[in-house]
């Protein structure tokens, strides 16, 4: 009987992870479309740990490159291809092939 009580208490902690205080938020996946030479939406608000997927739905190839110091960058994204990244901090980014295309990630 005691065993059942102990397992009933600890099993949820084992399977869900130990999260004192508040319930953890499950990471979400957000999509940014690249079309008509724009990132849509141009600014995206996410939580740290969320995943952002860029999908190239344009006529030409693009990339996604951190603007200030090129701290991160996607490979070349041909038409129809996508690339994803886990958001960790605020970033301004652009397409280095078409520098007039700009976007922002705001991490809350």
């Amino acid at each position: 009987m005691l065993n059942v009580w102990v397992w009933g208490l600890f099993l949820p902690l084992i399977f869900r992870g130990y999260n004192p205080g508040t319930e953890s938020k499950a990471p979400k996946i957000y999509t940014v479309e690249i079309r008509e030479m724009k990132f849509v939406p141009a600014e995206i608000r996410v939580n740290k740990g969320d995943t952002i997927v860029w999908v190239n739905r344009d006529m030409v190839a693009h990339n996604v490159t951190e603007e200030k110091s090129k701290a991160w960058a996607s490979p070349l994204l041909p038409v129809g291809k996508s690339w994803k990244m886990v958001a960790s901090k605020n970033s301004a980014y652009f397409c280095s092939l078409h520098p007039v295309m700009k976007g922002r990630i705001a991490v809350q």
């Binding site: 006529m59 520098p99 295309m101």
Partner: peptide
């Protein structure tokens, strides 16, 4: 019509 945004981005890039 779909070509126009690319042409416009090229123009802005060249102007830059």
């Amino acid at each position: 019509q779909n070509i126009l945004p690319a042409l416009d981005a090229h123009l802005q890039h060249a102007q830059m």
